[in-house]
């Protein structure tokens, strides 16, 4: 693994390697190199299985981090390739030519985060949501509570309790909610 990572690091300009979990190594790579790196991993290094593609919204830094999780059946190792892209006009190279199932992930990312994958099939179609007309709901600037109350209303009489205080009062009523 380490020799592989050393070689890749120089060839593809990988600028960060971390082992957050013992079984999963993640590499950080520039957007331009990502597709080439993933192709290399798939074709030469045995990472033939795409587990999933997902996105993390780092709104404070103005970036989305895309995570491509790849699996190698040979040595049963899992490798995450992380790519930072700009939050404004978010766009990324499509990898549907490498794995056909990447379409689906890319359609989902487009709908939930508003990330564009030019050339990826059926990008314009609705995926899960039907007729959605607000900003993509998984972006962190989207306030789901406000949206819900405005769109679906609020039932009069519904109250929220602080679970901790509420259960204390329920379980230890004689101690005045203080145990």
């Amino acid at each position: 693994m380490n020799t592989l990572l050393d070689r890749l690091a120089t060839d593809f300009g990988i600028y960060d390697i971390s082992d957050r979990k013992p079984a999963i190594t993640t590499l950080k790579v520039e957007k331009q190199q990502a597709e080439r790196l993933i192709r290399e991993l798939r074709d030469r290094e045995g990472y033939t299985h795409l587990n999933f593609i997902t996105c993390i919204d780092y709104i404070e830094q103005g970036i989305f981090t895309l995570v491509y999780m790849l699996h190698n059946y040979g040595d049963k190792s899992t490798l995450g390739v992380e790519v930072d892209i700009d939050r404004e006009n978010a766009e990324m190279t499509s990898i549907h030519t490498l794995w056909a199932q990447a379409w689906t992930y890319q359609r989902e990312l487009r709908e939930m985060f508003g990330i564009n994958f030019p050339g990826s099939p059926r990008q314009e179609e609705d995926f899960c949501l039907e007729g959605w007309d607000d900003i993509p709901p998984m972006r962190r600037e989207f306030n789901t509570k406000t949206y819900s109350t405005e769109t679906f209303g609020h039932r009069e009489g519904r109250v929220s309790e602080d679970p901790r205080e509420h259960m204390k009062a329920q379980l230890y009523p004689t101690r005045g909610g203080d145990n």
Partner: peptide, 19 residues
């Protein structure tokens, strides 16, 4: 369906079915 339940703040589930 009565008042949103634990999905009261979801962008995708209704809060009062009898509407």
């Amino acid at each position: 369906p009565a008042n949103g339940g634990m999905y009261f703040d979801s962008y995708n589930t209704i809060n009062q079915f009898d509407l």
